Measured scan of single mutants.
Amino acid sequence: MTFKLIINGKTLKGETTTEAVDAATAEKVFKQYFNDNGIDGEWTYDDATKTFTITE
């Protein structure tokens, strides 16, 4: 399955996707992406659209 990440950061904005077997696996991938890029904020997940959103 394809999961999308929408980034609404102070310095970084955009979208990316990842292929994962489930939302929990995608969450781990995206959290690592947050850490690697110094993004910290509030994030949500919409199961209907398989979209994670992080807002700094």
Rank of each mutant, 00 (worst) to 15 (best):
M1W: 12
M1D: 10
M1F: 14
T2M: 12
F3N: 01
F3C: 02
F3D: 01
K4E: 03
K4I: 14
L5G: 02
I6P: 00
I6K: 05
N8E: 07
N8Q: 09
K10E: 10
T11L: 12
T11P: 05
L12R: 03
K13R: 11
K13V: 11
K13M: 10
G14R: 11
G14S: 09
G14H: 14
E15T: 09
E15W: 10
T16N: 06
T16D: 04
T16P: 02
T16L: 15
T16W: 15
T17W: 14
T18L: 12
T18Q: 04
E19C: 11
A20V: 03
A20R: 02
V21R: 13
D22M: 02
D22Y: 02
A23D: 03
A24G: 09
A24M: 10
A24V: 10
A24N: 08
T25S: 13
T25Q: 12
T25H: 14
A26T: 00
A26H: 01
E27C: 09
K28Q: 12
K28P: 02
V29P: 00
F30K: 00
F30V: 03
F30T: 00
K31A: 06
K31L: 10
F34T: 15
F34W: 13
F34D: 01
N35W: 12
N35A: 15
D36C: 07
N37E: 14
N37H: 13
N37M: 15
G38W: 14
G38D: 10
G38M: 10
I39M: 11
D40R: 13
D40K: 13
G41D: 03
G41P: 03
G41H: 10
G41S: 04
E42I: 13
E42D: 12
W43H: 01
W43C: 07
W43Y: 04
T44C: 08
T44A: 13
Y45K: 00
Y45D: 00
Y45I: 00
D46I: 03
D46E: 05
D46F: 02
D46H: 05
D47E: 10
D47T: 06
A48I: 10
A48H: 11
A48L: 09
A48M: 10
A48P: 07
T49I: 05
T49L: 06
T49E: 05
K50W: 05
K50A: 05
K50F: 10
K50G: 03
T51L: 02
T51I: 04
T53C: 06
T53E: 04
T53I: 07
I54G: 02
I54Y: 13
I54S: 03
I54H: 06
I54N: 01
T55G: 05
E56V: 14
E56G: 04
